[in-house]
């Protein structure tokens, strides 16, 4: 009889699970936190951009989701669940940022190692459809797009359902997974016809309840914490150049759909 009760107690205990969001561990994290990322971050710079910032995001995510329906979900699931909910945007912010920043740091490596990797032929073929035919062209496109944010933002290279590739600019905490929260437009100042049409297109998509199957394969972080320590407030361009030379393309190649 006692045993049965203990069993019940254990069952209750097991079902009352809570999850706490922790900073995920990176490959080579020990080396990075000791030496920084060669060619990109000092140890202090790495600490702010990854260890501290990710800790900040995951702690806040835990605080925001504790005791809610999102308690047991991963950051990725939370961002999908909250993207459409206007009252859940604080939670969305932390989930989306935590996910994006993880995606970004997974693809970084020391310059010496990263320089041995190249985008796969398959990837370059897909990019050729976007008029990007060489590494230089890809670099130029990536750097101009990611350095054009007025404020904070993310630049993604995304794969669409038809397997074509496209660059996607996300202002602030925008996510590539849902068109309604891409946040590609900054509506301060004058609004041109292209932005107006884009807005109408989004409105139409949402009215038709269209689904979004976009997947990011490359993320570039243009947020202040990613560069302020090593490059200063005005050092974004220099930082982005260095990011380019520290991308481990092996990671990116693997994210692309392959037969």
């Amino acid at each position: 009889m006692f045993r049965r009760q203990a069993n019940i107690a254990r069952k209750v205990f097991l079902s009352a699970k809570r999850s706490i969001h922790e900073v995920p561990s990176l490959k080579n994290e020990d080396i990075f936190s000791k030496n920084g990322i060669e060619g990109l971050y000092s140890p202090k710079g790495f600490k702010l951009a990854w260890s501290d910032y990710q800790k900040y995001l995951t702690t806040n995510l835990t605080l925001q989701t504790n005791g809610t329906e999102n308690e047991l979900r991963s950051a990725y699931q939370i961002l999908l669940h909250t993207a459409k909910q206007t009252t859940e945007q604080h939670t969305f912010h932390f989930a989306s940022q935590a996910h994006n920043n993880h995606l970004f740091f997974q693809q970084l490596d020391d310059k010496s190692r990263a320089s041995n990797t190249r985008p796969s032929r398959f990837l370059m073929e897909r990019l050729a459809d976007q008029d990007i035919t060489s590494m230089e062209a890809l670099r130029d496109r990536l750097l101009t797009e990611s350095d054009s944010f007025t404020g904070q933002g993310w630049l993604f290279l995304v794969e669409l359902p038809d397997k074509s590739l496209k660059f996607l600019r996300c202002e602030n905490d925008g996510t590539p997974y849902y068109y309604g929260k891409n946040q590609s437009l900054d509506l301060n100042g004058g609004i041109d016809e292209a932005s107006y049409d884009k807005l109408n297109e989004l409105n139409q998509k949402a009215a038709n309840r269209e689904k979004d199957f976009t997947l990011p394969i490359l993320a570039i972080n243009a947020w202040s914490p990613a560069y302020i320590e090593d490059y200063g407030v005005t050092g974004r361009s220099k930082y982005l150049e260095n990011v380019w030379s520290c991308i481990n393309w092996d990671v990116v190649n693997k994210r692309l759909f392959q037969l």
Binding site: T150, N188, G189, G190, I191, D192, E193, S195
Partner: peptide, 15 residues
């Protein structure tokens, strides 16, 4: 500049 799309970059820096 604040309602002229073609001058948005100037508006951005000025504001």
């Amino acid at each position: 500049t604040f309602n002229k799309p073609d001058l948005q970059d100037i508006y951005t820096q000025a504001s």
